[in-house]
């Protein structure tokens, strides 16, 4: 097996580029907490409405700088009353589903969470700019999938 000199140059370049990509996302994810949505918490999908924090969905202030937003997704909407959160504060979104798989996606932000029944998806995000943001479901969930949306107000 013999590699042409130029092929060695190309593969070295390619592998270094891939390593740099991995390094950049890896460092930013694990040392600055920029990990994608996830979480290992479970929940009984039939008892969502009786289980904290989903028994009282909506915004709760945890301390001066952090808020929690609990949301229940279902075909075809979100049970999330009064979605108003401040800009510049850490918002922890917790979402689960009572039926099929959905997503909880806020337009123009990093919030793009898959919502799986039996699981609680968590994502922390800080809004920079006040405004009204579109929330939508981007995982197919049935006939009304394209009607599944909502809005969050950042003040």
């Amino acid at each position: 097996m013999h590699l042409h000199k130029f092929e060695k140059i190309w593969l070295t370049f390619g592998i270094v580029a891939l390593a740099v990509f991995l390094g950049v996302v890896g460092v930013s994810a694990f040392s600055q907490d920029h990990t994608p949505a996830g979480g290992m918490d479970t929940i009984d999908p039939k008892k969502v409405n009786e289980t904290a924090p989903f028994d009282k969905p909506g915004v709760t202030q945890l301390d001066d700088d952090t808020y929690q937003v609990a949301i229940v997704a279902m075909a075809f909407g979100y049970n999330a009353p009064d979605l108003k959160v401040p800009a510049g504060k850490e918002i922890i979104f917790k979402v689960t589903s009572t039926d099929v798989v959905h997503s909880f996606t806020i337009d123009n932000t990093k919030v793009n969470m898959m919502v799986v029944p039996g699981r609680i998806t968590t994502k922390s995000y800080t809004f920079d700019k006040p405004g009204k943001y579109l929330i939508l479901c981007n995982e197919y969930c049935g006939t009304g999938h394209h009607m599944m949306f909502n809005e969050i107000e950042v003040y």
């Binding site: 593969l11 592998i15 694990f30 949505a37 996830g38 898959m114 699981r119």
Partner: peptide, 28 residues
């Protein structure tokens, strides 16, 4: 499945690294 719950970040990232390995034969 990078944006979904039930898989810890460690395992997600490990498979991301393996995914990058499969790019090499395409570069070849």
């Amino acid at each position: 499945q990078l944006t979904e719950p039930g898989i810890s970040n460690f395992w997600k990232f490990l498979q991301v690294v393996l995914t990058f390995m499969v790019i090499i034969p395409s570069l070849m």
